[in-house]
């Protein structure tokens, strides 16, 4: 570090050859990192951010009404678990997400596969799906309340709306990317079309499909909060919205953090399951 960086114009003086060291290996352009290092760096950065935040709050640099300290948020969360049934609300929200998501996936997977397997299905559905896909879900809230009232079905409908149309195109794309060679090998082994679909094309697309399901599940949470803010008396969205009304910022943030934690844990579990199931990749 004591060496002055080369200041000459390119061509005048060659830069001194770099000494290989631990430092450069961490910063190698497009270099690899071990799993453990990655986890440590990720954890360290998060902790650092929390520390800075906590310090800023304690030093009075920020107004606690707007940005309460992490410790205050944590305290609020514990209190909410004891007094406000926070875990029950989290459970309700999770159940809503998974129900709507399962419904969307159960419909999107076959439709998406058909769209790529038969060009005529794709040609028929693509314009409609593309149109609806670009409609912002919040814009459809009034319509869905007129159709479904303010009960559970409105929330499921909104979540389904937000995921189905995205997912169906992703599934179609997964199917489209299955190498034609796999399909043709199966045919020359005497398979018929349904067998090719089931035994080869579906198996070939499965890793990509599971990945896309995982990503889409995350989007579901975005729409959940919208649905629960508009019309609900339960769920994390409801908890956040109620706390906001009384300017209880720590509680609002606690609700947000709970969503973040659920998302992080689900995502990591699904990633681990993916690695286990598709060891051959």
């Amino acid at each position: 570090m004591s060496e002055a960086p080369p200041t000459g114009i390119a061509g005048k003086s060659a830069p001194a050859p770099r000494q290989p060291s631990r430092r450069t290996s961490l910063w190698a352009f497009r270099g690899a990192l071990t799993r453990r290092t990655q986890a440590a760096v990720g954890f360290g950065t998060s902790m650092l951010l929390l520390l800075v935040w906590e310090a800023a709050a304690r030093a009075g640099l920020v107004n606690a009404t707007f940005l309460p300290s992490p410790v205050a948020v944590l305290n609020a969360m514990l209190l909410m678990v004891q007094k406000q049934n926070l875990l029950w609300h989290a459970g309700v929200s999770t159940l809503r997400v998974w129900t709507a998501f399962a419904l969307a996936a159960a419909m999107a997977v076959p439709v998406g596969i058909l769209m790529s397997s038969y060009r005529v299905v794709g040609a028929a559905l693509e314009p409609i799906i593309d149109f609806i896909r670009y409609l912002p879900v919040p814009a459809l809230v009034p319509l869905s309340i007129i159709w479904f009232g303010v009960g559970e079905s409105t929330k499921l409908y909104l979540l389904w709306l937000g995921t189905f149309f995205q997912l169906v195109l992703l599934v179609a794309d997964d199917m489209r990317r299955v190498p034609q060679e796999y399909v043709e090998i199966a045919y020359t082994l005497g398979a018929r079309t349904p067998q090719v679909l089931r035994d080869v094309a579906f198996r070939a697309m499965l890793p990509g499909l599971v990945d896309n399901l995982r990503i889409t599940l995350g989007w579901c949470w975005t729409y959940l909060i919208i649905a629960e803010i508009v019309a609900a008396d339960s769920g994390i969205g409801f908890v956040i919205w109620t706390a906001r009304r009384y300017m209880k910022t720590p509680e609002v943030m606690a609700g947000v953090v709970v969503i973040g934690i659920i998302g992080l844990v689900t995502d990591q579990l699904l990633r681990a399951a993916h690695r286990r199931a598709f060891r051959y990749l």
Partner: peptide, 18 residues
């Protein structure tokens, strides 16, 4: 159409990875 009496071997994607 294709059947098992005439089999193909391709350059790539010749075996099923799963």
């Amino acid at each position: 159409g294709p059947d098992h009496r005439r089999g193909m071997v391709f350059q790539s994607y010749s075996s099923f990875p799963w």
